[in-house]
Design a protein around this nucleic acid. Structure first.
Lengths: 153, 153
DNA sequence: AGTGAAAGGTATTGGGG
DNA sequence: CCCCAATACCTTTCACT
């Protein structure tokens, strides 16, 4: 799907605030509300808009700790790798799973309420599994920016 | 602010899909639509709901590359540190900025369209600045999970 | 705080260019 | 693909429990 300048403006606005009304959106991009409506529907159908969500402040719901983990695996055999990946992805405390190459194989970003919760998670995620060579824990001191904005232009 | 079980259910649902109507939400949590309306307003006022956004699929808008950077700084003097942080935070390609302690000082997550864009960014972010001791680039092979969900219970 | 109903505002669909 | 207009739906407010 090709995005024209209308679609791009709509995306730019919606990824900052998706509660903005289609009428207001329409005024901003110089289109009618129904045109905006159809474009949004199309962007969603094509998966360009992946989801519409509220972002929660983790600190305010008692989960103030962000932890980064660099994971080294033992064996890169595809089925074992997929198995590790699934375990990470299915863990609700794990927000982000990146498969990388270099000194380590996975980088994880976790959100937890305290270090005890993290310690218990390490058992499930790393110690109980037999394809993990090692992992390095990095505790985040300050979460200076955290969003999923994509440049659209 | 104390969250009761109604608030928690509402938050759980909204961080999966904030386009769900308040009436549907009300049915799910066994409250009236107006009660849900007031609770959502309160959650927003208190900053528990930080923002409402559409999440864009980066690949589908021509920005398929995620890069992780570990940054070591030269001098931890507060003003220099803040200066580095601001430079990272203000860069639109930088989605996430974590200040950490250990082998490195900042971990960044970037989204770019190609390696050339990243290379140019490194000049702005790292080479032009004189408080950067070094940085390590990790190119993400596969983005297996990426969200900002927080466990609410 | 919660409810239900009324009022006001939005989203969505269909006819026509 | 656009606009406009009608309808259906949703949010918001208010009086009351």
């Amino acid at each position: 799907m090709e995005l024209d300048s209308y679609d791009k403006k709509i995306l730019k606005l919606l990824q900052q605030n998706n509660k903005i009304s289609q009428r207001t959106l329409a005024e901003n991009v110089n289109l009618s509300a129904s045109a905006v409506n159809r474009r949004i529907a199309s962007l969603e159908e094509h998966g360009i808009i992946k989801e519409n969500v509220s972002i929660i402040n983790p600190t305010k719901v008692g989960r103030p700790i962000t932890i980064i983990v660099e994971v080294k695996i033992e064996n890169e055999r595809l089925d074992l790798l997929e198995n590790d990946k699934k375990r990470f992805v299915n863990c609700p405390q794990v927000q982000q799973v990146y498969y990388v190459t270099g000194d380590f194989d996975f980088l994880l970003v976790l959100n937890v309420c305290d270090m005890e919760e993290y310690e218990q998670l390490t058992r499930e995620l790393f110690f109980k599994a037999d394809n993990i060579k090692g992992f390095k824990t990095i505790v985040v001191m300050q979460n200076a920016k955290q969003n999923l904005h994509v440049i659209v232009d």
